[in-house]
Every structure is written in structure tokens, then in C-alpha cells.
Design a protein around this nucleic acid. Structure first.
Lengths: 109, 109
DNA sequence: AGCGACCTATAGAACGTCAATAGGAAACTC
DNA sequence: GAGTTTCCTATTGACGTTCTATAGGTCGCT
């Protein structure tokens, strides 16, 4: 039995996508699978959340996309981080650190 | 200089309010101040977020409210946790633990 | 030919937070 | 005692993000 999947916290999806793409470019569904994997199955990314987010992030200039072919011979759009995207990853990681620390403070005792 | 205040993460406000009320009943603005305090000044709760949340939580049965007088002789509405509210506090604390762990996993390396 | 897996995509709704605004009542200022 | 500030509660409307539901095309398998 896997642990129950928690619905995403608003504001964490961007960071998870950026982190997933940090090492190598991937296509949409690949990103979704990778996010699920690196969170130990806790977070599940639905297509209805994923694609709007990807398009938004592309518009922000954090990602660039190009059509290619998947491992399964499907037409797939590959996303990779731009320089700005790497910067954003750092920013959001730092932001998460602050939030996480503040919550830990609040919840201790 | 205080550290910059991060705007609230959606989904954390309820938990923070519940935690603030865990020890003693408080009025609205008192809760806001306490949340700011226990998060080390990181989170700031605006009235426009606070009161809708309080009313919602009251409807859920996690809080009960009664009018009283503040330390400054103002008319103030005091909130306290119900039994259900304590249960909810435990639930949301556990949820936060899962989220926090998953994010830590995702961000390590 | 039919079916499931893979991949991208959008519309509409739900939800929680924020900015702006409001108003009353106590306390302070001069 | 008039004017101002502080304290306390409250609502409205807008906004951004995520979810549900739905869609369509292509590959591979039987």
C-alpha cells in the first residue's frame, strides 16, 4: 500500500517542475512522473494542473520547449530550463526554506 | 531589519490559526498577531484573509465564538477550539508533516 | 479492426488569499 | 470637546492556482 496522495499545495508546483527539469530536459508527462517519483509518491500532478503551469512558466521565460520524439515514439514536447529558470529554481528553493522553517517554528511545542 | 514577510501559502492558514488557538482562546486580531509571532515574523495574516477563514472554520465546527472585552476595553469576539478543532489540528499537522517531508525529499541533492 | 497506453491540451468550476474599503468605539492630544 | 489615532470586526470584488472533466491524435499489440 502506498501512502495516501496529498493534493498539491498551491505554490509548490512550480518549484517541483523546476526541480524535475534541473538535471535534464523532459516532456510533460515525464515531468509529472518524475515529480511523483522524487516526492516518494506523495504528490501527484494532474494534466489539468501540469500543462497550464508549463505554458505559464514558458511565458515567464523559465522554460523553453521543442517538439521531439519520446522513448515510445510519440510526438512529445520537451521542456528545458533557461538561465532564468535556474535562477527561479534558486529563488523558490530559498522561499520554500523560509516557509518550511517558519512552519516548523510555529508547530514546535 | 526583520526578514521579508512571505505571503501565505494557500492551505497553511487554517493550520496556523488552529495552532494559535491551541493553548488559549483569543480574538481575531490577537490570532493574527500570534501567528506572526510564532512564525518569527515570516507570515503576516491580513484581515481580508483572517475573518473569512475564521467564519469558515466556525461553520466547520472547529471553533466557537463569543463576544467579550479585549485587554484594551474593545468589543472583541473570542474564538476557541472545539473538540473537533483539536482533532483537525492533529490532522493538519500530520498533513503538513507529509508535505514537508515530500518536499525535502524532492529538493535534496 | 479494435483497444489500451501515451502525449498534449482546454474549458469551467472551486477554492483561498489579497487589496481596498467600511464603520464603530475607546483612548489620546491639544 | 474636537480631532486624530488605535483597536476590532467585517465585506466586497478581483486574482491566481489547481482540479474535474473532456477531448483528440498516434503508436503498438492482439
Amino acid at each position: 500500500m502506498e501512502p495516501a496522495q496529498t493534493s498539491l499545495l498551491q505554490g509548490t508546483l512550480d518549484l517541483l517542475i523546476l526541480k524535475a527539469l534541473a538535471l535534464q530536459e523532459m516532456h510533460g508527462l515525464g515531468i509529472a512522473r518524475r515529480v511523483e517519483q522524487i516526492t516518494g509518491g506523495t504528490f501527484q500532478v494532474k494534466p489539468g494542473s501540469l500543462f497550464p503551469a508549463l505554458h505559464r512558466m514558458e511565458e515567464e521565460g523559465w522554460l523553453t520547449a521543442s517538439w521531439g520524439e519520446s522513448e515510445n515514439n510519440r510526438r512529445a514536447k520537451y521542456y528545458r530550463l533557461t538561465k532564468l529558470g535556474h535562477k527561479q529554481l534558486a529563488t523558490e528553493t530559498e522561499r520554500w526554506g523560509r516557509i518550511s522553517l517558519a512552519m516548523a517554528q510555529a508547530l514546535e511545542t
